[in-house]
């Protein structure tokens, strides 16, 4: 329980979380981003073809959406797969996520309020699940995406048992 003075320990680092997410997450993200960017892009192009006067206004949006789409389909899934890691211990849940903006979060088990294993429609297609751990803060939830369904369920069950053992206010 040592407190550290910010100025003295400048070379403090965090280690990466122990576990990687499932490989299928890359496919999931690729398909998701294809839909996410492909549909608006198609809509914009169709609008530009059909609606002559609007064409000059649609040039910039089409270029922008196309560039974003290429990045999100070609780069994001692989980049995310390298970044996303997680671990759940007795004392805390620790996860890293993101690609352009990378983030790591730690929530102590004693503050956990709910633990869920969620599966969206696309995730179900690939047999994946998201482990979501929430605390009393509405921004404090930790979502660990792209886990194998059984792994996520096991972790949720384990965490639920541990979290119930820790007494406390949780706010």
């Amino acid at each position: 329980m040592a407190t550290h003075d910010t100025s003295e320990h400048q070379d403090v680092r965090v280690r990466v979380p122990l576990l990687r997410i499932d490989r299928r997450a890359r496919l999931w993200w690729t398909l998701r981003n294809l839909l996410l960017c492909g549909i608006p892009l198609a809509a914009l192009i169709v609008a530009a073809v059909i609606w002559e006067p609007a064409r000059v206004w649609l040039v910039a949006p089409i270029v922008a959406v196309a560039l974003v789409g290429v990045a999100k389909v070609g780069v994001e899934p692989w980049w995310r797969y390298r970044v996303h890691r997680w671990e759940v211990t007795e004392r805390a849940t620790y996860a890293s996520s993101g690609w352009l903006v990378v983030e790591w979060r730690v929530a102590p088990t004693s503050r956990i309020q709910t633990v869920d294993a969620l599966r969206g429609p696309l995730e179900q297609l690939f047999g994946l699940a998201t482990l979501r751990v929430t605390t009393a803060s509405s921004y404090g939830a930790i979502s660990i995406r792209g886990l194998d369904r059984s792994v996520a369920q096991d972790a949720a069950d384990r965490l639920a048992i541990v979290a119930e053992l820790s007494e406390g206010d949780a706010t």
Binding site: H9, R13, V14, R15, T89, S96, V106
Partner: peptide, 16 residues
């Protein structure tokens, strides 16, 4: 809170 996850000094395993 971070006791379990921090490393000090030269041990730099963090890619992030």
């Amino acid at each position: 809170l971070l006791d379990e996850v921090i490393e000090r000094g030269e041990a730099r395993a963090s890619r992030m």
